[in-house]
C-alpha cells in the first residue's frame, strides 16, 4: 500500500535508452540468418515506445538485447549512457507467457527479484505493495496453476514492478489474453506507467494497442528488421479507442505494414 499512498509523481524515474547501429544474426545449421539490420532508436526517460512489425521480424530479439540476455553482433546499447553488458534488474522483461515459477506461490513469485538480489528480508513490504498494485491481494498464497491467464500475467507484471525498473521491457505481454482482458489490462498498463514513471518498451502485433498505449510507435520492416517509420502519437491520456486522430494514424501504420487494403 506504500506505493498507492504516495502522491502522483509526474517526475520521470525512467532511464534513457540508446540503441546505436545494432545488428544481430543467428547461426542456424551453419548458415547466418540476419535478424536486425543497423537499428538505431533513442528513447527519452519516461517515454512509452511501441515496436510494431511483421511476425518474426526480430522485435523480440531486440528486446533480448535490451534486457542484456544476449550481446549484439554489432552496435551498442546504452542505458543512461552506460553500455548494457548483461541482465540487470533495472531493466526487467515481461514475456508473452507469464513464465511464473509453478512451484512458488504468487507471493514468492513476486518476491523473486528481491530474493535474487538478496534484499528480500528488509523489503518484504514491497512485495505486498506490488501484489496490491495489480489487484491480486487475495491471491498471495495461490499457486500459478490456480490462476487465470489474465491473473497470471498480472502476477508477472507485479514481479517486474517490485524491482522498481527504470526500463520496463514488455514482449507482447497481452498477446495471449482474451480481447476483453486485454482491453482492461491496457488501461492498467497506462496507469502503472503514469504512476511509476518508468521508460516502457513494448513489442506488439496489435496496431490499436500500440496507439492506445505509446508516445511513439516505431515500425519495423520484414526480417532483417530495419526501422521504417518513427511515428509520434501526440494524444493525451487516457486515450479513447474511437479517437479519429488515432484511427487516422492506424490507417497510416497499416499502410506502412502493407495491410492498407484491409482498411
Amino acid at each position: 500500500m506504500v506505493a498507492l499512498a504516495k502522491p502522483f509523481q509526474p517526475v520521470a524515474t525512467g532511464a534513457s535508452l540508446d540503441i546505436k547501429g545494432v545488428s544481430h544474426a543467428f547461426d542456424i545449421d551453419g548458415s547466418v540468418l540476419p535478424v536486425l539490420d543497423d537499428v538505431s532508436i533513442s528513447v527519452a526517460p519516461g517515454e512509452f515506445v511501441a515496436l510494431l512489425g511483421p511476425s518474426g521480424c526480430g522485435k523480440s530479439t531486440l528486446l533480448r538485447l535490451v534486457a542484456g540476455l544476449e550481446p549484439p553482433r554489432a552496435g551498442t546499447l546504452e542505458e543512461d549512457g552506460v553500455a548494457i553488458t548483461g541482465p540487470y534488474p533495472s531493466r526487467v522483461v515481461v514475456f508473452q507467457d507469464p513464465t511464473l515459477f509453478p512451484w512458488r506461490t504468487v507471493w514468492d513469485n513476486v518476491a523473486l527479484g528481491l530474493e535474487a538480489q538478496g534484499v528480500l528480508k528488509t523489503q518484504r513490504h514491497r512485495v505486498d505493495a506490488a501484489i496490491d498494485l495489480v489487484g491480486l491481494g487475495a491471491f498471495k498464497k495461490a499457486y500459478p496453476h490456480q490462476l487465470s491467464g489474465g491473473m497470471a500475467q498480472r502476477v508477472a507484471l507485479a514481479r517486474a514492478l517490485v524491482n522498481d525498473p527504470r526500463i520496463l521491457v514488455l514482449d507482447e505481454p497481452l498477446g495471449k489474453l482474451d480481447s476483453l482482458t486485454r482491453i482492461t489490462m491496457q488501461a492498467e498498463l497506462v496507469s502503472l506507467w503514469q504512476r511509476n514513471g518508468f521508460t516502457a518498451l513494448l513489442v506488439t502485433h496489435d496496431v490499436e494497442e500500440a496507439l492506445f498505449l505509446a508516445n511513439r510507435v516505431i515500425v519495423f520492416s520484414d526480417r532483417p528488421a530495419r526501422v521504417t517509420a518513427d511515428i509520434t502519437v501526440d494524444r493525451p491520456y487516457p486515450r479513447h479507442r474511437g479517437d479519429p486522430h488515432l484511427a487516422e494514424l492506424r490507417r497510416q501504420i497499416l499502410g506502412l505494414l502493407g495491410l492498407d487494403a484491409t482498411w
Binding site: 534486457a67 534488474p89 522483461v93 514475456f95 513464465t99 523473486l112 530474493e115 535474487a116
Partner: peptide
C-alpha cells in the same frame, strides 16, 4: 525451460541462485 532462467537472470539472479532456486 530456458524461459525460467531468462526471467530469473533479468531479475538479477546469480548462477548459484539459478541452480538452487530454479
Amino acid at each position: 525451460s530456458s524461459a525460467y532462467y531468462d526471467v530469473a537472470r533479468t531479475l538479477g539472479a546469480r548462477p548459484s541462485f539459478l541452480v538452487t532456486k530454479v
